[in-house]
């Protein structure tokens, strides 16, 4: 039986809160020093809003600084990816497709055919709804994208990631089968506990 919408939303919120707490702790213990870069960012913003630099120059300089910040954040980004994968992919794989949020709400992720969910399906699902597309692309992109076009790179990525999340949300809300984009691509559905 399909999981009730309300339970899906509540379990998603519980999982996001748990993850934010975990990632918050990581940030407390490992916090790269971006003070100089942030100060440089303040300076270029002030110059732009004072009318001393053009929009194009501002955007390019912003991208250059974001690029350096993302490079500094490589370890924290990798840790974030690892924890998202552990929480949303590995943990449910060994727990009947249930995260903590889903367990509390007695719902689970299943493969289309009702077979046991695979790691790949869980990974693909979470690429879309839990920011993994953005995080993975930024982690690699910070080192392979030309700094002067970096702003456009992360903007495009952000739009894609948010677009995927919103598309999935609306599909879950309005489709008859309650399948989001992440369910359709990964071949999964969310059911009430057996």
């Amino acid at each position: 039986m399909k999981a009730p919408l309300k339970k899906r939303i509540v379990s998603y919120l519980i999982d996001i809160i748990i993850l934010l707490v975990i990632l918050g702790f990581i940030n407390i213990f490992y916090n790269p020093d971006n003070t100089a870069l942030n100060k440089q960012m303040d300076m270029i913003s002030l110059e732009y809003y004072s009318g001393n630099t053009s929009f194009n120059e501002y955007i390019t300089d912003l991208g250059v600084i974001y690029n350096q910040i993302d490079r500094n954040n490589i370890i924290i980004n990798i840790l974030n990816i690892i924890f998202i994968v552990i929480y949303f992919v590995v943990f449910p794989y060994f727990n009947n497709g249930q995260t903590i949020g889903k367990r509390i709400n007695h719902i689970e992720v299943r493969a289309k055919s009702n077979k046991k969910i695979t790691l790949l399906k869980l990974f693909v699902r979470n690429l879309i709804i839990n920011g993994l597309v953005y995080l993975l692309a930024v982690t690699v992109g910070a080192f392979v994208i030309t700094p002067s076009i970096y702003f456009w790179f992360i903007s495009l990525l952000g739009i894609i990631q948010i677009g995927l999340v919103f598309a999935s949300m609306f599909m879950v809300l309005y489709r008859k089968d309650k399948k989001g984009l992440h369910d359709l691509i990964a071949g999964t559905w969310v059911a009430s506990e057996r």
Binding site: D61, V64, Q68, T146, P147, S148
Partner: peptide, 19 residues
């Protein structure tokens, strides 16, 4: 690795920089 050089390099660069 210092910011003043990294930002200068990133503005000048037409490819990713190495630190």
């Amino acid at each position: 690795p210092l910011t003043r050089a990294r930002i200068t390099a990133s503005i000048v660069a037409n490819k990713p920089i190495k630190i």
